[in-house]
């Protein structure tokens, strides 16, 4: 299990990295390597050139600016998880990260790497969709911002163009009067989710004034549970509305039967997880008894 030959460059600036990527469609950026290197060791992936981003200090910057958390793509997942300012701004992030693989993997795995990898069962892309975050992509032609729901196209496929580099992840801070929760079911601790649901519930006078729900593991990409959100809007996060939301979430399940879970099972999982995460999120709304 040794990787095939490749060329290696470790540029010191984003511009140099973009130049290296621009000339070669088979070149790949190397971030933390926790997803890419296994596929190379299996020789499933055999990039011509690895453009190692580790020397580009600008990609490690992170800051809470008003209601946006800006996370440099090369930020290690474990660093984000333990960042107190980020935790204060949006505690959902740490809760989600606690489910991403294992500490030793998060020590090296990067936030940008996981999002660009875009595994349909991965937690971080699901969180980004749920929070309505976005990414900044740069190429030699310029820079653009891509909203999370436009970024993820298919399992391990994003809207990033060849030669485009994900440089920053932008995660909204937790809005006022909003509770959060993430829960997943995985075969083993740290495994990719059979199904996972991320919930953000904003309450006004005991009813849901805003709801954002997204799921991983249930379709070919992280998925907004729009119908479930609609079922809760204007209603208290419990009882019939919650039951309706759970039922509505089922229609988003499209992942076919695989070796770990059938469609029926995933459908039941997403319904149960919607009930549980919404209830938990609602219970966490500040000031709510």
């Amino acid at each position: 299990m040794k990787p095939a030959l490749f060329e290696y460059v470790a540029p010191r600036s984003v511009e140099e990295a973009l130049d290296a990527l621009a000339g070669d469609e088979m070149a790949r950026p190397l971030a933390g390597g926790q997803s890419l290197i296994p596929t190379m060791n299996f020789r499933i992936a055999a990039p011509s050139t690895l453009v190692d981003l580790r020397r580009i200090g600008a990609l490690e910057a992170r800051a809470v600016e008003g209601d946006v958390i800006r996370v440099g793509a090369m930020t290690r997942q474990r660093d984000l998880e333990r960042d107190e300012a980020v935790r204060r701004a949006n505690p959902l992030i740490a809760e989600v990260l606690g489910n991403v693989a294992h500490i030793v993997i998060r020590n090296r795995g990067t936030v940008g790497g996981s999002i660009a990898h875009a595994d349909a069962a991965a937690e971080l892309p699901c969180m980004l969709v749920a929070t309505g975050g976005s990414v900044v992509a740069r190429s030699t032609g310029g820079e653009r911002t891509i909203a999370a729901e436009e970024l993820f196209l298919f399992h391990m496929t994003t809207a990033l163009e060849p030669g485009e580099l994900l440089t920053e992840v932008r995660i909204p801070a937790l809005p006022p009067r909003t509770g959060y929760a993430f829960q997943e079911v995985a075969r083993r601790h740290g495994d990719y989710a059979l199904a996972g649901v991320c919930a953000l519930v904003t309450l006004r006078d005991g009813v849901c004034s805003a709801v954002r729900l997204a799921a991983c593991g249930i379709a070919s990409k992280p998925t907004r549970l729009a119908a479930a959100e609609t079922a809760l809007l204007g209603a208290p996060p419990e009882g019939e509305a919650l039951a309706d939301a759970a039922e509505a979430a089922r229609e988003c399940v499209t992942a076919g039967d695989d070796r770990q879970a059938g469609l029926d099972y995933r459908s039941d999982l997403v319904a149960a997880l919607v009930r549980r995460t919404v209830a938990k999120a609602a219970g966490r709304v500040e000031g709510r008894a």
Partner: peptide, 26 residues
């Protein structure tokens, strides 16, 4: 957790530690 799975053509489906679910401490 653990079983060695094959498709109907006899191809192993989980010949790695990601898919062969050896238990962790958890």
């Amino acid at each position: 957790y653990e079983r060695c799975e094959f498709d109907e053509d006899g191809t192993p489906l989980n010949a790695n530690f990601m898919d062969f679910l050896m238990p962790y401490a958890t």
